[in-house]
Amino acid sequence: MQESRRTFLKAAGAATAAALVAPHVARAATFPSGPVSLMVPFSPGGGADRSMRLMAPFLSKELGVPVTIENIDGGGGWLGWSEMAKWDPEKDDHKLGCINLPHLFSYMDPRMKRTETLESFNILCWHSYDPCIWAVRENDERFLNLKQFLDYVEKNPDQIVISSTGVGSDDHMGIAYAEKFLPNFKVRKVYSNGDNKKIQEVIGSVTDCVAGNVGYYVPFMLEAQLRPICVLHDERWSELPSVPTFKEVTGKENVSYAGRTVGAAKGLPEEKNKVYLDALRRTIANPEYIIQELASKNVLMFLEGDALQARLKSSADRVASIKFWESE
């Protein structure tokens, strides 16, 4: 009994003490000089929030100041991101933000009338990466692999139903790519806000196939409820070595993923960028942190510099080529 209460009080107390004291014990010469806020553009309890809350204490250790999570939820992330694009490099130099891809690329959808582009953000590094997969029911005899699935779709146009997250999401983008670049790929789609409804539909035989991410769906494969038929990645995914990529079967490179990056204020001086980047690099390589993330099936992937820019550009080009907003 003592233990639970003490842990709670200690944690709450520490956070408070830090928040109250830190601004005043300004270590003037050093940067950062006070608490750093990490903006998560979704509500507490979601995937991005869980991951960033796990990271905060480790990042805090590296930066030497408290890192607090600030949730700004709404507009599919854009409430937070449109603020982030307006951050002042001087006044808002103690702010970091989580940027989700491909969500951010929804600025390309002309119907949303966004003024921001990729250039409006100062993305420091890649944080985590979860490729898309397609999976069918383990006991579905009609198709055991992607080849058979595509053949079935070709023979029965407009009969197969795929569960996906809403239009513009990473899951939908993979399907939209297939619809656009495979000649005879005509399927029906039902959309959800999240994975719970999708998994309910496919396991309950309401739909035939589900488009999701490795992290969430691996457990259902281990439970022998779902069988992955392809991974939408440029090479086979280390966690699922026996699952072929979309390209291996069709010759078309269909890459889609849910990724997170961390950014700071646009125009932040190089030396401040470097402080954050060094701390993030060490945090994301911290084995203790990696283990905690693995427990929630989240694969960390650190990219910076040219590799980061190349990945951002190729992703942006792909979204621009799919033009998902024209698909309906």
Binding site: A12, A15, T16, A19, S37, T68, E70
Partner: peptide
């Protein structure tokens, strides 16, 4: 809000 929930 400030002490227990850590909100600012």
């Amino acid at each position: 809000f400030e002490l227990a929930l850590g909100a600012q």
